[in-house]
Simulated scan of single mutants.
Amino acid sequence: MVNVVLAGGGTAGHTSPLIATAQALLDHAGVDAVSCIGTPKGLEGRVIPEAGLELDMIPPVPLPRKVSVDLAKVPLHLADAVRRARAVLRTRRADVLVGFGGYVSMPAYLAARGAGVPVVIHEQNAVPGLANKVAARFARQVFTAFPDTPLPHAEFIGMPLRTAVRELAELDDEARTARRLAARKDFGLDADRPTLLVSGGSQGAVAINSAVIGAREQLLADGVQVLHVLGPRNVGDSRKVTDPTTGAAWLPVGYVDDMSQAYAAADLMVARSGAGTVVETAAVGLPTVYVPLPHGNGEQARNASSVVAAGGGVLVRNADLDARRLLLEVERIHDPQALAGMSRAGRGLMPSGAAQELADAIVSVATTRRSR
Protein backbone atom coordinates (compact mmCIF):
# COMPACT_ATOMS: atom_id res chain seq x y z
CA MET A 1 0.00 0.00 0.00
CA VAL A 2 1.42 3.35 -1.07
CA ASN A 3 1.03 7.02 -0.17
CA VAL A 4 0.47 9.44 -3.05
CA VAL A 5 0.83 13.23 -2.97
CA LEU A 6 -0.54 15.28 -5.87
CA ALA A 7 0.49 18.86 -6.65
CA GLY A 8 -1.34 21.24 -8.95
CA GLY A 9 -3.52 24.28 -8.92
CA GLY A 10 -4.23 27.80 -9.99
CA THR A 11 -7.04 27.11 -12.46
CA ALA A 12 -9.61 24.43 -13.20
CA GLY A 13 -7.34 23.28 -16.03
CA HIS A 14 -4.98 21.94 -13.37
CA THR A 15 -7.37 21.07 -10.55
CA SER A 16 -9.99 19.13 -12.55
CA PRO A 17 -7.58 16.43 -13.82
CA LEU A 18 -5.91 16.34 -10.40
CA ILE A 19 -9.24 15.63 -8.70
CA ALA A 20 -10.21 13.04 -11.32
CA THR A 21 -6.87 11.26 -10.78
CA ALA A 22 -7.19 11.45 -7.00
CA GLN A 23 -10.61 9.84 -7.19
CA ALA A 24 -9.22 7.02 -9.34
CA LEU A 25 -6.37 6.53 -6.86
CA LEU A 26 -8.77 6.35 -3.90
CA ASP A 27 -10.55 3.49 -5.68
CA HIS A 28 -7.24 1.70 -6.37
CA ALA A 29 -6.52 -1.38 -4.28
CA GLY A 30 -2.83 -0.53 -4.00
CA VAL A 31 -3.26 2.93 -2.46
CA ASP A 32 -3.26 3.66 1.26
CA ALA A 33 -3.48 7.47 1.32
CA VAL A 34 -3.94 10.36 -1.14
CA SER A 35 -3.31 14.03 -0.33
CA CYS A 36 -2.66 17.22 -2.27
CA ILE A 37 -0.35 20.23 -2.15
CA GLY A 38 -1.57 23.65 -3.24
CA THR A 39 -1.10 27.36 -2.66
CA PRO A 40 -3.48 30.00 -1.26
CA LYS A 41 -3.32 31.79 -4.61
CA GLY A 42 -5.25 29.26 -6.68
CA LEU A 43 -8.62 27.62 -7.10
CA GLU A 44 -7.40 24.52 -5.26
CA GLY A 45 -8.06 26.07 -1.84
CA ARG A 46 -11.79 25.68 -2.52
CA VAL A 47 -12.32 22.86 -5.00
CA ILE A 48 -9.92 20.27 -3.56
CA PRO A 49 -11.47 20.26 -0.04
CA GLU A 50 -14.94 20.33 -1.66
CA ALA A 51 -13.95 17.10 -3.43
CA GLY A 52 -13.22 15.53 -0.04
CA LEU A 53 -9.44 15.54 -0.45
CA GLU A 54 -6.82 16.56 2.11
CA LEU A 55 -4.86 19.68 1.16
CA ASP A 56 -1.54 21.02 2.47
CA MET A 57 -0.62 24.61 1.58
CA ILE A 58 2.77 26.02 0.63
CA PRO A 59 3.62 29.61 -0.46
CA PRO A 60 3.14 30.45 -4.17
CA VAL A 61 6.22 31.37 -6.20
CA PRO A 62 5.04 33.35 -9.25
CA LEU A 63 7.71 34.26 -11.78
CA PRO A 64 7.58 37.98 -12.75
CA ARG A 65 7.54 38.57 -16.50
CA LYS A 66 9.84 41.62 -16.24
CA VAL A 67 13.16 42.33 -14.56
CA SER A 68 12.31 43.86 -11.19
CA VAL A 69 12.94 43.71 -7.46
CA ASP A 70 10.35 40.90 -7.30
CA LEU A 71 12.41 38.85 -9.74
CA ALA A 72 15.46 39.16 -7.50
CA LYS A 73 13.41 37.75 -4.60
CA VAL A 74 12.37 34.61 -6.49
CA PRO A 75 15.29 32.40 -5.31
CA LEU A 76 14.55 33.19 -1.67
CA HIS A 77 10.82 32.58 -2.06
CA LEU A 78 11.47 29.38 -4.01
CA ALA A 79 13.84 28.04 -1.36
CA ASP A 80 11.21 28.63 1.34
CA ALA A 81 8.48 26.95 -0.73
CA VAL A 82 10.73 23.96 -1.46
CA ARG A 83 11.49 23.60 2.26
CA ARG A 84 7.77 23.68 3.07
CA ALA A 85 6.98 21.18 0.32
CA ARG A 86 9.68 18.81 1.54
CA ALA A 87 8.15 18.93 5.03
CA VAL A 88 4.77 17.97 3.54
CA LEU A 89 6.28 15.03 1.65
CA ARG A 90 7.97 13.87 4.83
CA THR A 91 4.83 14.23 6.97
CA ARG A 92 2.70 12.47 4.38
CA ARG A 93 5.34 9.73 3.92
CA ALA A 94 5.05 10.18 0.17
CA ASP A 95 6.06 7.29 -2.06
CA VAL A 96 5.45 9.35 -5.21
CA LEU A 97 4.69 12.95 -6.16
CA VAL A 98 2.32 13.56 -9.06
CA GLY A 99 2.43 17.04 -10.63
CA PHE A 100 -0.17 18.76 -12.80
CA GLY A 101 1.38 22.23 -13.15
CA GLY A 102 0.60 25.61 -11.65
CA TYR A 103 2.50 27.72 -9.12
CA VAL A 104 2.73 24.88 -6.62
CA SER A 105 4.40 22.38 -8.93
CA MET A 106 7.94 23.75 -9.27
CA PRO A 107 8.75 23.78 -5.53
CA ALA A 108 7.01 20.43 -5.11
CA TYR A 109 9.08 18.89 -7.92
CA LEU A 110 12.35 20.24 -6.50
CA ALA A 111 11.42 19.07 -3.01
CA ALA A 112 10.66 15.58 -4.28
CA ARG A 113 13.91 15.39 -6.21
CA GLY A 114 15.90 16.45 -3.14
CA ALA A 115 14.07 13.94 -0.95
CA GLY A 116 14.48 11.05 -3.37
CA VAL A 117 10.72 10.79 -4.03
CA PRO A 118 9.95 9.78 -7.64
CA VAL A 119 8.00 12.26 -9.76
CA VAL A 120 5.20 11.57 -12.24
CA ILE A 121 3.95 14.41 -14.44
CA HIS A 122 0.71 15.00 -16.28
CA GLU A 123 0.71 17.98 -18.68
CA GLN A 124 -2.75 19.16 -19.70
CA ASN A 125 -1.84 21.67 -22.43
CA ALA A 126 -0.42 21.17 -25.89
CA VAL A 127 2.16 23.85 -24.97
CA PRO A 128 3.75 22.70 -21.68
CA GLY A 129 4.24 25.01 -18.71
CA LEU A 130 7.67 25.94 -17.33
CA ALA A 131 7.48 23.72 -14.24
CA ASN A 132 6.65 20.62 -16.27
CA LYS A 133 9.33 21.43 -18.85
CA VAL A 134 11.95 21.50 -16.09
CA ALA A 135 10.72 18.48 -14.15
CA ALA A 136 10.27 16.31 -17.25
CA ARG A 137 14.06 16.03 -17.34
CA PHE A 138 14.16 14.03 -14.10
CA ALA A 139 10.59 12.67 -13.78
CA ARG A 140 10.11 8.92 -13.67
CA GLN A 141 7.21 9.15 -16.12
CA VAL A 142 5.60 11.94 -18.16
CA PHE A 143 2.05 11.82 -19.53
CA THR A 144 0.16 14.25 -21.76
CA ALA A 145 -3.43 15.13 -22.61
CA PHE A 146 -2.59 15.83 -26.27
CA PRO A 147 -0.67 13.65 -28.73
CA ASP A 148 1.74 16.36 -29.90
CA THR A 149 2.87 17.97 -26.62
CA PRO A 150 6.66 18.54 -26.84
CA LEU A 151 8.00 16.98 -23.63
CA PRO A 152 10.83 14.41 -23.44
CA HIS A 153 9.81 10.77 -22.91
CA ALA A 154 6.14 11.76 -22.86
CA GLU A 155 3.32 9.27 -23.33
CA PHE A 156 -0.06 10.43 -24.64
CA ILE A 157 -2.92 9.06 -22.52
CA GLY A 158 -5.48 11.87 -22.73
CA MET A 159 -6.97 13.93 -19.93
CA PRO A 160 -8.15 12.47 -16.62
CA LEU A 161 -11.88 13.14 -16.87
CA ARG A 162 -14.44 13.84 -14.20
CA THR A 163 -16.69 10.83 -13.60
CA ALA A 164 -19.78 12.43 -15.17
CA VAL A 165 -17.89 13.35 -18.35
CA ARG A 166 -16.24 9.93 -18.60
CA GLU A 167 -19.59 8.18 -18.21
CA LEU A 168 -21.11 10.32 -20.97
CA ALA A 169 -18.13 9.56 -23.24
CA GLU A 170 -18.63 5.83 -22.77
CA LEU A 171 -22.37 5.71 -23.60
CA ASP A 172 -23.47 3.79 -26.67
CA ASP A 173 -25.60 5.52 -29.33
CA GLU A 174 -28.96 4.43 -27.91
CA ALA A 175 -28.09 5.52 -24.37
CA ARG A 176 -26.64 8.76 -25.71
CA THR A 177 -29.93 9.61 -27.45
CA ALA A 178 -31.90 8.99 -24.26
CA ARG A 179 -29.45 11.12 -22.29
CA ARG A 180 -29.75 13.95 -24.84
CA LEU A 181 -33.53 14.07 -24.53
CA ALA A 182 -33.38 13.99 -20.72
CA ALA A 183 -30.74 16.72 -20.58
CA ARG A 184 -32.75 19.03 -22.83
CA LYS A 185 -35.80 18.50 -20.65
CA ASP A 186 -33.79 19.39 -17.54
CA PHE A 187 -32.73 22.69 -19.11
CA GLY A 188 -36.28 23.45 -20.26
CA LEU A 189 -35.36 23.05 -23.94
CA ASP A 190 -37.29 21.45 -26.79
CA ALA A 191 -36.29 17.77 -26.91
CA ASP A 192 -36.36 17.48 -30.71
CA ARG A 193 -34.88 20.81 -31.81
CA PRO A 194 -31.28 21.39 -33.07
CA THR A 195 -29.37 22.65 -30.03
CA LEU A 196 -26.35 24.94 -29.93
CA LEU A 197 -24.29 25.16 -26.73
CA VAL A 198 -22.18 28.29 -26.25
CA SER A 199 -19.62 28.84 -23.50
CA GLY A 200 -16.57 31.05 -23.17
CA GLY A 201 -15.34 29.28 -20.04
CA SER A 202 -16.16 29.81 -16.37
CA GLN A 203 -16.06 33.62 -16.73
CA GLY A 204 -17.53 33.85 -20.22
CA ALA A 205 -15.94 35.43 -23.31
CA VAL A 206 -16.94 38.84 -24.63
CA ALA A 207 -16.15 38.11 -28.29
CA ILE A 208 -18.15 34.87 -28.30
CA ASN A 209 -21.06 36.39 -26.38
CA SER A 210 -21.24 39.38 -28.72
CA ALA A 211 -21.21 37.22 -31.85
CA VAL A 212 -24.00 35.01 -30.53
CA ILE A 213 -26.16 37.96 -29.48
CA GLY A 214 -25.66 39.46 -32.94
CA ALA A 215 -26.67 36.19 -34.61
CA ARG A 216 -29.45 35.33 -32.16
CA GLU A 217 -32.41 36.55 -34.22
CA GLN A 218 -31.33 34.57 -37.28
CA LEU A 219 -30.42 31.46 -35.27
CA LEU A 220 -33.88 31.34 -33.73
CA ALA A 221 -35.53 32.07 -37.07
CA ASP A 222 -33.63 29.08 -38.46
CA GLY A 223 -35.10 26.90 -35.70
CA VAL A 224 -31.89 26.53 -33.67
CA GLN A 225 -32.28 26.72 -29.90
CA VAL A 226 -29.32 28.08 -27.95
CA LEU A 227 -28.10 27.24 -24.45
CA HIS A 228 -25.80 30.21 -23.82
CA VAL A 229 -23.46 30.14 -20.81
CA LEU A 230 -22.67 33.85 -20.58
CA GLY A 231 -20.53 33.77 -17.43
CA PRO A 232 -21.64 34.95 -13.96
CA ARG A 233 -20.48 38.53 -14.52
CA ASN A 234 -22.15 38.82 -17.92
CA VAL A 235 -25.59 37.33 -17.43
CA GLY A 236 -27.05 40.43 -15.74
CA ASP A 237 -30.81 40.59 -16.23
CA SER A 238 -30.79 38.52 -19.43
CA ARG A 239 -34.02 36.65 -20.02
CA LYS A 240 -35.09 33.82 -22.28
CA VAL A 241 -35.98 34.91 -25.82
CA THR A 242 -38.32 32.83 -28.02
CA ASP A 243 -38.98 33.24 -31.73
CA PRO A 244 -42.76 33.58 -32.15
CA THR A 245 -42.76 31.76 -35.49
CA THR A 246 -40.40 28.82 -34.99
CA GLY A 247 -40.67 28.49 -31.20
CA ALA A 248 -36.87 28.21 -30.91
CA ALA A 249 -35.47 29.76 -27.74
CA TRP A 250 -32.27 31.46 -26.60
CA LEU A 251 -31.68 30.41 -22.97
CA PRO A 252 -29.07 32.52 -21.13
CA VAL A 253 -27.44 31.17 -17.96
CA GLY A 254 -24.56 32.48 -15.91
CA TYR A 255 -22.89 29.16 -15.11
CA VAL A 256 -23.50 25.43 -15.45
CA ASP A 257 -22.36 23.30 -12.51
CA ASP A 258 -22.42 20.03 -14.47
CA MET A 259 -21.08 20.65 -17.96
CA SER A 260 -21.57 16.99 -18.85
CA GLN A 261 -25.31 17.71 -18.80
CA ALA A 262 -24.84 20.65 -21.17
CA TYR A 263 -22.64 18.54 -23.46
CA ALA A 264 -25.32 15.84 -23.49
CA ALA A 265 -28.01 18.33 -24.53
CA ALA A 266 -26.10 19.82 -27.47
CA ASP A 267 -25.62 18.96 -31.13
CA LEU A 268 -22.88 21.56 -31.63
CA MET A 269 -20.83 23.85 -29.38
CA VAL A 270 -19.05 27.17 -29.74
CA ALA A 271 -16.32 27.56 -27.11
CA ARG A 272 -12.88 28.72 -26.11
CA SER A 273 -10.22 26.03 -26.51
CA GLY A 274 -8.87 25.59 -23.03
CA ALA A 275 -7.37 22.13 -22.59
CA GLY A 276 -10.25 20.79 -20.52
CA THR A 277 -12.91 21.97 -22.96
CA VAL A 278 -11.08 20.58 -26.00
CA VAL A 279 -10.50 17.16 -24.46
CA GLU A 280 -13.96 16.86 -22.92
CA THR A 281 -15.85 17.87 -26.06
CA ALA A 282 -13.77 15.51 -28.18
CA ALA A 283 -14.10 12.63 -25.73
CA VAL A 284 -17.90 12.92 -25.54
CA GLY A 285 -18.14 13.39 -29.31
CA LEU A 286 -19.54 16.92 -29.31
CA PRO A 287 -18.61 18.75 -32.56
CA THR A 288 -17.19 22.13 -31.58
CA VAL A 289 -16.27 25.46 -33.14
CA TYR A 290 -13.17 26.45 -31.15
CA VAL A 291 -12.37 30.15 -30.74
CA PRO A 292 -8.95 30.33 -29.03
CA LEU A 293 -8.18 33.05 -26.53
CA PRO A 294 -6.05 35.55 -28.49
CA HIS A 295 -3.63 36.20 -25.61
CA GLY A 296 -0.84 34.22 -23.94
CA ASN A 297 1.58 31.89 -25.72
CA GLY A 298 -0.86 30.53 -28.27
CA GLU A 299 -1.57 27.41 -26.24
CA GLN A 300 -5.33 27.49 -26.84
CA ALA A 301 -4.88 27.30 -30.60
CA ARG A 302 -2.39 24.47 -30.12
CA ASN A 303 -4.79 22.68 -27.78
CA ALA A 304 -7.40 22.50 -30.52
CA SER A 305 -5.03 21.63 -33.36
CA SER A 306 -5.05 17.84 -33.03
CA VAL A 307 -8.85 17.63 -32.73
CA VAL A 308 -9.31 19.99 -35.69
CA ALA A 309 -6.80 18.01 -37.76
CA ALA A 310 -8.72 14.81 -36.97
CA GLY A 311 -12.00 16.41 -38.08
CA GLY A 312 -13.62 16.64 -34.66
CA GLY A 313 -13.88 20.42 -34.64
CA VAL A 314 -13.11 23.63 -36.50
CA LEU A 315 -10.98 26.61 -35.51
CA VAL A 316 -12.00 30.26 -35.88
CA ARG A 317 -9.65 33.05 -34.83
CA ASN A 318 -11.03 35.40 -32.22
CA ALA A 319 -10.51 38.36 -34.57
CA ASP A 320 -12.56 36.63 -37.29
CA LEU A 321 -15.56 35.83 -35.12
CA ASP A 322 -18.64 37.96 -35.68
CA ALA A 323 -22.33 37.25 -36.14
CA ARG A 324 -21.94 36.48 -39.85
CA ARG A 325 -19.07 34.02 -39.32
CA LEU A 326 -20.86 32.35 -36.43
CA LEU A 327 -23.96 31.78 -38.54
CA LEU A 328 -21.81 30.31 -41.29
CA GLU A 329 -20.16 27.85 -38.90
CA VAL A 330 -23.42 26.90 -37.20
CA GLU A 331 -25.03 25.92 -40.52
CA ARG A 332 -23.54 22.45 -40.04
CA ILE A 333 -26.02 21.87 -37.21
CA HIS A 334 -28.62 21.11 -39.90
CA ASP A 335 -26.43 18.34 -41.40
CA PRO A 336 -26.71 15.24 -39.16
CA GLN A 337 -24.24 13.25 -41.26
CA ALA A 338 -21.57 15.94 -40.97
CA LEU A 339 -22.10 16.17 -37.21
CA ALA A 340 -21.92 12.39 -36.85
CA GLY A 341 -18.60 12.33 -38.70
CA MET A 342 -17.17 15.05 -36.45
CA SER A 343 -18.42 13.21 -33.38
CA ARG A 344 -16.73 9.97 -34.40
CA ALA A 345 -13.47 11.79 -35.16
CA GLY A 346 -13.32 13.40 -31.73
CA ARG A 347 -14.23 10.24 -29.85
CA GLY A 348 -11.64 8.30 -31.80
CA LEU A 349 -8.88 10.73 -30.88
CA MET A 350 -9.40 11.33 -27.17
CA PRO A 351 -9.46 8.32 -24.83
CA SER A 352 -11.78 8.44 -21.83
CA GLY A 353 -9.83 6.19 -19.43
CA ALA A 354 -6.84 8.43 -18.67
CA ALA A 355 -7.58 8.77 -14.95
CA GLN A 356 -7.42 5.02 -14.37
CA GLU A 357 -4.39 4.60 -16.63
CA LEU A 358 -2.55 7.37 -14.82
CA ALA A 359 -3.50 5.93 -11.43
CA ASP A 360 -2.11 2.52 -12.43
CA ALA A 361 1.17 4.12 -13.55
CA ILE A 362 1.46 6.13 -10.33
CA VAL A 363 0.96 3.05 -8.16
CA SER A 364 3.51 1.13 -10.24
CA VAL A 365 6.15 3.85 -9.74
CA ALA A 366 5.43 4.09 -6.02
CA THR A 367 5.47 0.32 -5.54
CA THR A 368 8.81 0.04 -7.34
CA ARG A 369 10.29 2.62 -4.95
CA ARG A 370 9.02 0.75 -1.89
CA SER A 371 10.40 -2.56 -3.11
CA ARG A 372 13.94 -1.21 -3.34
Rank of each mutant, 00 (worst) to 15 (best):
T39S: 10
K66A: 08
P118F: 05
V98T: 09
G52I: 14
V104C: 03
L76I: 12
L151A: 02
F100S: 04
R166D: 03
A81E: 09
V88Y: 04
R137T: 08
R166I: 05
F146L: 14
F100W: 09
V134L: 14
V67Q: 03
I58R: 10
R84F: 00
A126D: 08
A145E: 07
E54Y: 00
M159A: 12
V127C: 02
V82G: 02
L43R: 15
A164N: 09
P64F: 06
R65E: 12
V47H: 13
G158T: 07
G45E: 15
P107C: 06
Q141L: 10
D56T: 07
R90P: 00
A51C: 14
D172S: 10
R93F: 00
N125D: 15
L110D: 04
G101E: 07
A72V: 12
L55R: 09
A139Q: 10
E50A: 15
A108M: 09
D173G: 02
A164G: 01
F138T: 08
R86I: 02
A85G: 11
L43P: 02
R83Y: 00
T149L: 09
L78Y: 03
V117T: 14
A81Y: 11
D70L: 09
G38L: 14
A108V: 07
R137S: 01
A72M: 14
E54W: 03
E123C: 02
R86E: 15
M159W: 00
E123P: 02
D95M: 03
N132Q: 05
E170P: 01
E44I: 12
L76N: 03
D173T: 13
E123T: 03
R90D: 13
T144C: 10
R140I: 01
P152L: 02
G45Y: 04
K133A: 04
A112N: 04
D80G: 00
R86L: 02
I157N: 02
A131P: 00
A135N: 12
P118A: 06
V74A: 06
P60H: 05
A112P: 05
A87W: 00
P40Y: 11
R90C: 00
P150K: 10
D70K: 15
V61S: 03
L110P: 01
V47T: 15
L63C: 01
F138S: 05
V67F: 13
G158F: 03
G116W: 13
P60T: 02
R162Y: 08
P152G: 00
N132H: 10
L168V: 12
P60W: 08
F146S: 12
N125C: 07
Q124A: 15
L43K: 13
E167W: 01
V120E: 12
P49G: 07
P147T: 09
D56R: 13
P147H: 05
F156D: 09
L43Y: 12
M159P: 03
L78G: 00
F146G: 08
A131L: 06
P128D: 05
G99T: 10
A164S: 14
D173N: 05
I157F: 05
V61M: 08
T91A: 10
I121T: 07
A94Q: 06
A72G: 00
G38H: 12
L71S: 13
A72T: 11
A79Y: 04
R93C: 04
A145D: 04
A85Q: 10
V82R: 14
L151M: 05
